[in-house]
């Protein structure tokens, strides 16, 4: 454990050093990332210029939901870089061989070899947005709220990591340059609207198949004091843990498949 922590810090420091060597480049990356964050909310912004509420959700409530989804997503984005290139770089170009030749868990190497540092911007932006909304909505947070918040962010990040690990692992069986990560990644935005506007099927999908609602909507309802989803809110850690275990199983199977096909 201690060795892995040291390794993580070393990986992180190394990578940060590389990025900082190209300051202008990093600056452009941060600006692009912030632009993407703002544009991602553009649809809702434009919409609310024409309508006062979305179902019974006010602008600041929807904004809170958006802000909350950004924080775990930001952490996830920081470590998910290699998942995008996995099919191409690791499987098709064969770099996964190198991963298998080292005495460190494959996942550890895949997740921590590269960091999308600029995505820390999302964590920051999300936190600021939440702070503004907490104030505007007069939510009056106490100690427990902060603890729940930290826990929910952690669970959200774990859910994102798990979902995308499972999708990335598909590359072990199907040789494909882009895989199915990008289309599902774009579905993240669906968890940023009140779940109640969807019909049963989509609600079910966003809860139990691609559980993005557990990373954004259910935690948000708790903080917005919308009591009707309290039981699902308490399930968040369970869902996060279950999907993580599932992801580990799928990943291990994928690695085993790689070793037998050598694709």
């Amino acid at each position: 454990m201690k060795r892995h922590l040291r390794l993580f810090l070393l990986y992180f420091a190394q990578y940060a050093k590389v990025r900082m060597a190209y300051k202008a480049d990093f600056f452009i990356a941060v600006i692009s990332s912030m632009t993407a964050t703002v544009l991602g909310f553009g649809f809702v912004l434009v919409l609310f210029s024409k309508i006062p509420r979305l179902q019974d959700w006010s602008f600041y409530e929807v904004l809170f939901l958006y802000g909350f989804s950004l924080v775990p997503l930001g952490f996830f984005n920081v470590i998910s870089w290699n998942l995008y290139e996995f099919g191409d770089v690791y499987i098709i170009q064969g770099r996964f061989d190198r991963i298998l030749l080292r005495p460190v868990h494959t996942l550890f190497q895949i997740l921590f070899e590269k960091f999308r540092l600029e995505s820390l911007q999302e964590v920051l932006t999300g936190t600021v947005v939440i702070a503004v909304c907490v104030q505007r909505l007069r939510l009056a947070w106490h100690g427990a709220d902060y603890l729940w918040f930290a826990l929910m962010v952690a669970c959200g990040a774990v859910i994102y990591v798990s979902v995308f690990l499972i999708l990335t692992a598909v590359s072990f069986w199907f040789e494909d340059r882009v895989g199915i990560v990008p289309p599902v990644f774009n579905m993240l935005t669906f968890g940023r609207y009140p779940l109640t506007i969807y019909n049963v099927f989509i609600q079910f999908m966003l809860s139990w198949i691609i559980p993005f609602a557990f990373a954004s909507f259910y935690p948000t309802t708790h903080f917005l004091r919308r009591e009707s989803f309290e039981s699902l809110f308490h399930l968040v850690p369970v869902v996060a843990a279950s999907f993580f275990v599932l992801a580990l199983i799928v990943w291990e199977r994928g690695v085993r498949n790689y070793s037998s096909t050598g694709s």
């Binding site: 990356a29 941060v30 692009s32 990332s33 632009t35 993407a36 544009l39 991602g40 553009g42 649809f43």
Partner: peptide, 23 residues
């Protein structure tokens, strides 16, 4: 650029919104 992926994401959202695809 060293890493273009951030720029590509920004472009993705920009096109999605400014092309009128979403609204």
């Amino acid at each position: 650029l060293q890493s273009i992926l951030g720029l590509l994401r920004a472009k993705y959202f920009l096109l999605e919104l400014f092309s009128g695809l979403l609204i």
